[in-house]
């Protein structure tokens, strides 16, 4: 016990927070089971907890869950990474000049409004049903939102800061590296988070329509056979994956960049 220097009034704060977070969810499961038992709900309409767990275990045991999840995550990763790699440089390039950015921002706004699901029909026409179409939809959802946000981020960096850097004799490269990118970073990360939110929903929708693996397909296939227990299990999996992705990865990233580089406007 000697090496425990930092004293906190609440022992194990992280554990406590996790328990506090999990408790209501556990309560929800209990209520679900009680409702199904008491009202004697038809399992075709809504299954009880053990049935869902058994169905879930079945999909884990035969490896289908694993292959669906990896297929979905792989598409999201490829689409998102490609989109970010293209969108950030493009956004910065366009944002540097105020005239160009104000000219182009309605365009990118228009396309970021359209992003994601609206592209599914034409994506399936261009790329056929499968990996290409779905990755394109994800790419699209992330690309336009991130570009628009980057553009916005760069063009809202206060001019005095840029002038100050220039008058201190920074080269263009240094200006980019030390002023423009850090200044736009909070916006970029927010854009990535928003874009991925749209992309994840777009992914599920696209997989229902246009493929034969992935979580969305798993859902839709189960619907064809009226296997509500598989549907409910897949919904829970989708919820958990997005919750983990958003709360444990994207939200902390956003908070950290805003704290570190965010320009709190003081009026």
């Amino acid at each position: 016990m000697a090496e425990r220097v930092a004293f906190s009034p609440v022992p194990y704060p992280r554990l406590r927070r996790t328990v506090k977070f999990m408790l209501p969810l556990m309560g929800l499961v209990v209520i679900w089971q009680l409702v199904v038992v008491i009202f004697d709900v038809n399992p075709r309409i809504f299954p009880d907890v053990p049935t869902v767990l058994r169905a879930g275990w079945g999909t884990i045991a035969d490896g289908s869950l694993f292959s669906h999840v990896t297929a979905s995550l792989w598409r999201v990763t490829v689409g998102t990474v490609l989109a970010i790699l293209l969108a950030v440089p493009l956004g910065i390039l366009m944002g540097v000049s105020r005239g160009v950015s104000s000219f182009l921002s309605p365009l990118f706004r228009f396309f970021s409004v359209l992003a994601g699901i609206a592209w599914i029909p034409i994506a399936t026409l261009w790329f056929g049903y499968g990996f290409g179409a779905i990755t394109f939809v994800i790419f699209n959802a992330v690309f336009f939102v991130v570009t628009y946000n980057t553009l916005l981020g760069v063009s809202t960096i206060p001019m005095p800061i840029r002038h100050a850097a220039a008058s201190l004799g920074t080269s263009r490269w240094q200006l980019l590296k030390e002023v423009l990118v850090p200044g736009a970073l909070p916006n970029i990360v927010t854009g990535i988070r928003t874009g991925m939110g749209f992309a994840w929903r777009g992914l599920i929708a696209a997989e229902m329509i246009a493929t034969n693996t992935g979580l969305g397909y798993m859902l839709f296939l189960a619907r064809d056979f009226y296997r509500t227990e598989v549907i409910v299990f897949a919904m829970i999996v989708i919820g958990i994956i997005w919750l983990v992705l958003d709360r444990l990865l994207l939200a902390p990233l956003e908070r950290a960049t805003v704290e570190r580089w965010g320009m709190v406007q003081r009026s």
Partner: peptide
């Protein structure tokens, strides 16, 4: 009591509800 539940339902996302709603 409700915040984690709300976050979870938000995370499931609208479109994932479609199959069971169709049932």
């Amino acid at each position: 009591a409700t915040w984690p539940v709300l976050l979870f339902f938000q995370a499931i996302g609208d479109i994932a509800w479609l199959p069971i709603l169709l049932v």
